[in-house]
Simulated assay, not measured.
Amino acid sequence: MHMGRGIINQGEDGGAPIILDKSIGERPDTEEPEPETSKPARPHHCSLCGKSFSQLMNLKRHERTHIGDKPHHCSHCGKSFTRLEHQKKHERTHTGEKPFHCSQCGKNFTRLGSLNEHKRIHTGEKPFHCSLCGKNFTWLASLNEHKKIHTGEKPFHCSQCGKNFARLWNLKEHERIHTGEKIYKCSQCGKSFTWLGDLKRHKRTHAGEKP
């Protein structure tokens, strides 16, 4: 088989050139590709939905979601759970335990998720973005409420007069017109008012201001 050759040195004193085999150290034209890194094997398959798991214990835990098996029971109310961590989380509602602590203000929380949400008050983070106007919100619920401005949705309905509202608290305020409820009370004279604005105006009479 003919091998490729090439001159790499003319040699000293004009001597004959030194010719070496060019194939030495060269990468072959055809080379087998390196095998791809194989994904972790998941030999355990759920016979009901086909989902695969690397460990048998994870498969067994998953299968409970299909058969309704809930082996973990709350010692306080008897409620059952598929997973132990869900039982432990639930039991805190009975014990009042709040193991998650805010390092900024010292407030404690039952759930880690609640602590992470609370921290946004300190950081000013607003991760929820309105795609229609670009406004950002700290809470997902606030974003969902805001979106009703764009859609015109008013899902909260007054059973007395049929008027609709975008926000629940607007409906609750409106219903006081029908019920006559007066939840705002003057701490100085005891007089009560339906609206907060009316209470504030009333307080000026005690301070000697014109309402």
Rank of each mutant, 00 (worst) to 15 (best):
R27N: 10
N136W: 07
S159G: 08
E173T: 14
T82H: 03
G113S: 14
E26L: 14
P28W: 04
P35M: 10
I7L: 09
L59V: 02
K22A: 14
E117S: 15
R176H: 04
F81H: 01
C49I: 10
D198R: 08
K210M: 12
K39R: 12
K182F: 11
K98I: 09
K89N: 10
N170M: 06
G113T: 08
H122T: 10
F100T: 03
P17S: 09
A207N: 10
P127K: 03
I177G: 00
N108S: 15
T95A: 00
S131H: 11
F100N: 12
E36R: 10
E26V: 14
K119Y: 06
A166T: 15
C74D: 02
D21Y: 04
K107F: 01
N116P: 02
T110N: 06
P28M: 08
C105T: 01
K191R: 14
L59N: 01
S38A: 14
F193R: 02
R111T: 09
E91W: 01
N170C: 13
H90A: 00
M3Y: 03
E85V: 13
E63F: 04
D29R: 11
P43R: 13
K126F: 05
G96C: 02
R42V: 12
K182Q: 11
I183M: 08
I121A: 03
P35V: 11
E153K: 06
K154I: 06
H45P: 12
L112I: 13
R92A: 01
P33G: 07
L140N: 04
K79V: 04
G11A: 07
R120F: 05
E181K: 13
H73W: 07
P211F: 02
H2Q: 13
E209P: 04
K163R: 14
K126N: 03
G14M: 05
T93N: 04
H90S: 02
P127C: 07
R61E: 12
N170L: 08
L196W: 02
H44P: 05
I19T: 14
N9C: 11
S192A: 13
S80M: 10
E26S: 12
G25R: 12
E153A: 09
E173R: 13
L168T: 08
H72C: 09
I19E: 11
L132W: 05
R201C: 06
G152S: 07
H2E: 15
R167S: 03
P28E: 08
K172G: 00
I24Y: 08
N116G: 04
K203Y: 01
G68E: 08
L140S: 06
R92I: 03
E117P: 01
C102Q: 03
L199P: 01
E32L: 13
I177T: 01
R92C: 01
I183Q: 11
C161Q: 05
D13T: 13
L199F: 00
G14R: 07
R111Q: 15
T123L: 05
T65H: 03
T65P: 02
N164Q: 12
K98M: 08
F193S: 02
D21G: 08
A16K: 15
I67L: 13
K39S: 14
S47Q: 11
S192E: 06
R120C: 05
H178E: 06
M57N: 15
L199D: 00
G4I: 11
P33A: 09
H94P: 03
E181R: 09
K79F: 00
P40G: 06
P43Q: 06
S142P: 02
K154H: 04
S54D: 05
C49Q: 09
G124Y: 06
G134T: 10
T95C: 00
